Simulated scan of single mutants.
Amino acid sequence: MTSAHSSRPVTLITGAAGGIGSELARTLAPTHDLILSGRGGAALAALCAELSATPLELDLLRPDTFAQAVAPLARVSNVVHNAGMVELGAVAEQTHEVWTRTLALNTVAPAELTRLLLPKLRAERGQVIFVNSGAGLVAGAGWASYAASKFALRALADALRAEEAQHGVRVGTVYPSRTATAMQQKVRAQEGGEYSPEHYIEPSSVAAAVAFMLAAPPDAQLTDVTVRAGYRA
């Protein structure tokens, strides 16, 4: 469990129960005290038990509940915003409800959670890492709402970096291309295609990139890291 007296960094990961989040938690567990956030449930509880991590149940569509949830946390050195959602659809077809929910979860929730945790992050001279997407760099047909939320997340990261430099808080963004996760399986179903995980980046590879960013020495920050699929034999 996390401790106010531990010398290890305390890292909070959202969307920790599966995919990139759980791989990152396992990667960091030997050297970080972990706060693993999710909507609750057996998967999050099991992961916290496995890694001796602190669970943090958050409904990311209810930012009004964040302050009470994070108030008991003694220390937070790093925050990795990994949670997200995607609903594909043409601009001519997607309703305001899809747009509102996508932006709320992918952009507004990270902004509010970061705001609330900034005093702790400043005290630790910590890092904020945003797990973005290739869609945060280029928007394709059918991806407008998701890409808009990720373009906005990139703007949030850039502004936050400029604002928090004086406080010693470093800010980075990682842009993975398609990754073999449950979200990607959902995307392929929405696209009407087959899901072949061997064609995509392993979640552990993205987790390794985030861990590398967090391990940067204090005089350096990795601001933007793009992770693309390599070639397999």
Results as ranks from 00 to 15, higher is better:
Gly172His: 04
Val79Glu: 04
Arg154Lys: 09
Thr107Asn: 05
Ala211Gly: 03
Pro119Gly: 03
Leu117Thr: 01
Ala42Ser: 05
Leu156His: 10
Pro72Ser: 12
His199Ala: 15
Ala233Asp: 15
Arg170Ala: 05
Thr173Ala: 01
Glu23Cys: 15
Thr226Asp: 02
Arg161Gly: 09
Met213Gln: 10
Leu24Glu: 12
Glu191Tyr: 07
Thr2Asp: 10
Val10Leu: 02
Thr54His: 14
Pro30Gly: 03
Val128Pro: 04
Ser77Trp: 12
Ser6Leu: 08
Arg188Ser: 13
Ser6Asn: 14
Glu87Asp: 13
Ala16Trp: 08
Arg115Ser: 14
Thr2Cys: 13
Leu36Lys: 06
His32Asp: 14
Ser177Lys: 07
Ile129Asn: 07
Val227Lys: 05
Glu124Gly: 12
Val210Ala: 03
Gly172Cys: 07
Val10Trp: 09
Leu60Trp: 12
Pro72Phe: 13
Leu222Ala: 08
Val108Ser: 00
Glu163Arg: 09
Val79Ile: 14
Arg232Gly: 15
Asp158Trp: 00
Leu56Asn: 08
Pro197Val: 10
His32Gly: 06
Val169Thr: 06
Arg75Glu: 13
Val128Gln: 07
Asp64Cys: 06
Gln166Lys: 15
Gly136Tyr: 07
Val171Pro: 13
Tyr195Gln: 07
Gly15Asn: 11
Ala71Cys: 03
Pro72Thr: 08
Tyr195Ala: 01
Asn132Ala: 03
Leu51Cys: 00
Asn78Gln: 14
Phe151Ile: 02
Ser177Pro: 01
Ser37Tyr: 02
Gly192Met: 12
Ala139Ser: 12
Tyr231Ala: 15
Ala16Tyr: 05
Val108Pro: 08
Ser77Lys: 06
Arg122Ala: 13
Val169Ala: 01
Gly84Asp: 07
Pro55Lys: 12
Ala90Arg: 12
Val98Trp: 06
Arg115Tyr: 11
Leu24Arg: 03
Ala141Asp: 13
Ala208Pro: 12
Ala211Asp: 09
Ala104Lys: 15
Gln127Asp: 13
Ala67Arg: 14
Thr173Tyr: 03
Pro9Trp: 02
Glu97Trp: 09
Leu105Trp: 00
